[in-house]
Design a protein around this nucleic acid. Structure first.
Length: 823
DNA sequence: GGTGGCGTTTTACC
DNA sequence: ACAGGTAAAACGCCACC
């Protein structure tokens, strides 16, 4: 039969010792399809340069006979071809060695211990990735496919009979369809509430489910009386019934994506443990399989056919660096993306809940799923485009970090360069790489403090990415000491010359394409905006920005410390050259950090500044390009707390649209109390809008008065700090460590990653250390006026006032009150 | 017993 | 342990006068 088809999830199985792929997906009639297919299984053996053809022929004869028996599975070398390939941009002759089973390629490689072979590659990609590369049947793209429908057939050991799909096809052919047939995924958001946050140790009290067609809370906790008519409730007998009911709904609705928040680390493993306790098989998968958990650095919880997505992980890699939220809690994230929040509910043990508490609890639980559902809808275009661009299934791209995504992109695009894939580093190699000395990074210009008028800002588009492309910087283009090439890009790093070939390498070439595509999609987006274009443009932007970090990341297949160090060095040179040229053109540069330059317009016009930009661009090498970040009405730079040197990474700009851009100030730091942050924010706004300090001074005066009269609310003085490691590992006992210890005494479970909240209180005896005055937010006590004045409010504003030659301390002490009146 | 330098820690910038 | 280096700042600790 023939049908259109969009792949959603990939799995594999063995039949008669061979590997087969199972692709779960849908057609445009929204039927669920499983496609079964296979592909050639092989690895590469790269032959040393000097080996003669005759010797290669003999080698082939020897390799042909390799047969293995791995745990009862028989694998043998089935065919050998010789190919002209590239490996790390060098022409090589390589044997393509076909074998029976992908899982045994490692053992086959171990047997290829011949002196003629330089190295063996291409057996550590994972079968699903290998298949996608071989057959080019990419996730979430439309295909026209044809093949034989399997209906309880004995083919492949009857694999189709236990699949919960409309039909199962043994693939004959697949052809990509260029136009998008449209795909609206079926989505189910879920969330559980339990009596103990330790995995599996309490009972699951309720689970909420939200889809486009129903909202539900399943619970076995039925209040005796009810005040509200909560029609979303469905009561079951006990926890076991709850789990069965959950499974029943998942099966009946059969979503493409089952979505939670921190559900890899909580909801799904919890559910699995409680299912085990109740002797229930948690058979969520379309093949009735249970969720699979992997314990790496972080837990993952994957399901088959119905894809489990933990939105928290995707948000962390794809959005967090551009977000305003200070934490990635569901509450804050929902607030930022949806303008909605969690429902109020104070968690306590279920035995202490009243009937009306229970009703709030149900509403709270349901709303969490409503938020998760809303977030998934909002993020779907990005998830979709990530899968399409990286050519990896959604279950991968939503969990992987950007370095892994960069690597996926590379592996799926190597064929264009006829490249054999590099292997993953061994643990030993990773250790060596991590032990390497750090190299010098970006340049930061030391500003002179002051309030400036009419500031222009230029910045380099994808600075490091463009640098990598322009100077051809990568592992494979690096020329080490022994060899020397005349035509090379050279730069000095820590007193040593490093060189890179001018012959374009595959990594910079790939990156060039990424940057070009990003530019193209951005232009298209500006012409006619739509969510998919925006998502695609964004995916390429993130790829371009992560590629520098990738080459410097110790876990990367294409790791190159030299390339990373050279990227930083060349970029530094570029920005220094540009600063010099701007200065020489008669402008005064006041600040610069890594890839941006701020300078004063003064007696020039904005038109002239734009002309300067054009001139600079015409002189920049390769694809290096400066763009106008904006013209600003005013800009504020301050000194460091100690000394008179200008503070780096700390400034505020007021845009023509009256929008503030504040960087580095306490305003944007979450480890300062909100009173200090709000005060500073207002002061900055007033100073930038007015061009003088008068209104700001009155404002500060009022805040200090309120503070001294104890009018400040508790929440305004709370200081929040993240615990970065287990409590016991702290050498220095700072205030937040004391607060954490207090929480522990109260049996509030805390650990690495928890947010610690506290305030500084008055104490009866005079104590010197701040940590002796720490109290938890719900403890009784009055805030310490002296601390909040001298350690929060005044430090937050003193540097700003210093710009106007005002010493706030002297003013408060009443020494120089002529200007101020009574403080 | 105050002070200044340094190590530890957190958070921001790009 | 899952991209990198640069930088500010607070607090505690300890040597030193």
């Amino acid at each position: 039969m023939e049908t259109d088809f969009i792949p959603i999830d990939y799995d594999h199985f063995d039949f008669e010792d061979r590997n087969y792929i199972k692709i779960f997906g849908r057609n445009s009639k929204n039927q669920r399809i499983c496609v079964i297919d296979t592909c050639p299984i092989y690895l590469w053996a790269i032959i040393k340069d000097s080996v003669s053809q005759e010797k290669i022929n003999k080698l082939i004869e020897k390799i042909k006979d390799i047969e293995l028996d791995v745990k009862g599975r028989k694998t043998k070398v089935e065919k050998i071809e010789i190919h002209e390939k590239n490996f790390l941009d060098k022409k090589v002759r390589a044997l393509k060695i076909f074998a029976t089973n992908y899982k045994d390629l490692h053992d086959v490689a171990d047997r290829l211990d011949f002196p003629e072979i330089q190295c063996r590659r291409g057996y550590d990609l994972g079968f699903d990735t290998h298949y996608i590369i071989e057959k080019r049947i990419n996730p979430l793209q439309w295909y026209k496919i044809s093949g034989e429908v399997l209906n309880n057939s004995q083919n492949f050991g009857g694999v189709d009979s236990n699949l919960d799909v409309d039909f199962c096809i043994k693939l004959d052919s697949a052809k990509k369809i260029d136009n998008d047939l449209g795909f609206k995924p079926k989505v189910m958001a879920y969330d559980i509430e339990t009596d103990d946050i330790k995995l599996g140790e309490g009972e699951i009290l309720m689970v909420s489910l939200v889809t486009d067609s129903f909202k539900k809370v399943i619970t076995w906790k039925k209040p005796k009386t009810s005040e509200k008519n909560l029609d979303f409730l469905e009561f079951v007998k006990d926890e076991a019934d709850l789990i069965e009911k959950f499974l029943e709904y998942v099966k009946k609705f059969s979503p493409d994506f089952l979505v939670g928040y921190f559900s890899d680390g909580f909801d799904l493993p919890y559910m699995k443990m409680r299912a085990e306790k109740n002797n229930i098989r948690l058979s969520i998968g379309l093949d009735s399989s249970q969720p699979r958990f992997s314990r790496g650095f972080e837990v993952t919880a994957k399901t088959k056919g119905i894809v489990h997505v933990d939105l928290l992980k995707f948000i962390r890699t794809a959005y967090s660096q551009y977000m305003q939220s200070e934490t990635l809690s569901l509450n804050e994230v929902a607030h930022e993306f949806l303008g909605d929040e969690k429902k109020p509910f104070k968690h306590q043990h279920s035995s202490k809940l009243t009937d009306s508490n229970w009703e709030s609890y149900f509403e709270y639980n349901l709303h969490d799923s409503v938020l998760v559902y809303g977030l998934f809808e909002k993020m779907w275009p990005d998830i979709l485009e990530f899968s399409r661009v990286m050519h990896e299934p959604t279950s991968e791209v939503t969990r992987n970090g950007m370095s892994k995504n960069v690597e996926s992109f590379i592996l799926h695009n190597l064929e264009k360069f006829n490249e054999i894939p590099e292997k993953r580093p061994t643990n030993e190699e990773i250790g060596q790489r991590r032990g390497k000395e750090k190299y010098e990074g970006a340049f930061v210009f030391e500003p002179t403090h002051g309030l400036y008028e009419n500031v222009a800002v230029f910045d380099f588009t994808s600075s490091y990415g463009s640098t990598i492309v322009t100077y051809n910087l990568s592992k494979s283009t690096f020329i080490d000491d022994k060899k020397s090439e005349k035509d090379s890009y050279n730069i000095e790093i820590q007193g040593k010359k490093v060189s890179f070939s001018k012959k374009p390498g595959f990594f910079p070439e790939m990156l060039k394409e990424i940057i070009e595509k990003r530019k193209k999609f951005k232009e298209e987006l500006n012409k006619k905006p739509d969510v998919i274009k925006r998502a695609r443009s964004n995916a390429f932007k993130l790829l371009a920005n992560a590629s520098y970090g990738y080459q410097g990341f110790f876990g990367a297949r294409y790791y190159s410390r030299e390339a990373a160090a050279a990227t930083a060095a060349f970029a530094k040179k570029s920005i220094r050259d540009s600063i010099e040229k701007i200065d020489k053109s008669g402008y005064k540069v006041i600040y610069s950090d890594t890839d941006s330059i701020a300078f004063l317009i003064e007696n020039h016009t904005e038109e002239q500044a734009k002309k300067l930009l054009e001139k600079l661009n015409s002189e920049l090498p390769g694809i290096m390009e400066l763009e106008l970040e904006g013209f600003f009405t005013r800009g504020l730079w301050v000194t460091k707390r100690s000394g008179t040197l200008g503070a780096k990474k700390k400034y505020a700009l007021l845009g023509k649209d009256n929008k503030l851009k504040i960087r580095g100030f306490e305003t944007v730091r979450r480890d300062w109390c909100s009173l200090a942050r709000k005060t500073q924010n207002e002061v900055i706004r007033m100073v930038l809008q007015d061009g003088n300090e008068r209104r700001a001074l009155d404002f500060i005066k009022k805040v200090i008065q309120d503070l001294k009269q104890r009018k400040i609310q508790r929440e305004e003085i709370i200081i929040k700090t993240m615990l970065q490691k287990p409590l016991a590992e702290y050498k220095a006992i700072s205030p937040h460590v004391i607060a954490a210890q207090k929480m522990q005494e109260k049996e509030i479970p805390i650990g690495s990653g928890n947010m610690i909240e506290y305030f500084i209180a008055e104490t009866r005896e005079k104590k010197k250390l701040v940590r002796d005055k720490v109290k938890l937010p719900d403890e009784k006590g009055e805030y310490n006026i002296e601390y909040y004045l001298n350690k929060q409010i005044l430090p937050a504003v003193e540097n700003i006032l210093q710009v106007f030659n005002i010493n706030i301390h002297e003013m408060i002490d009443g020494k120089k009150q002529t200007k101020l009146g009574d403080f």
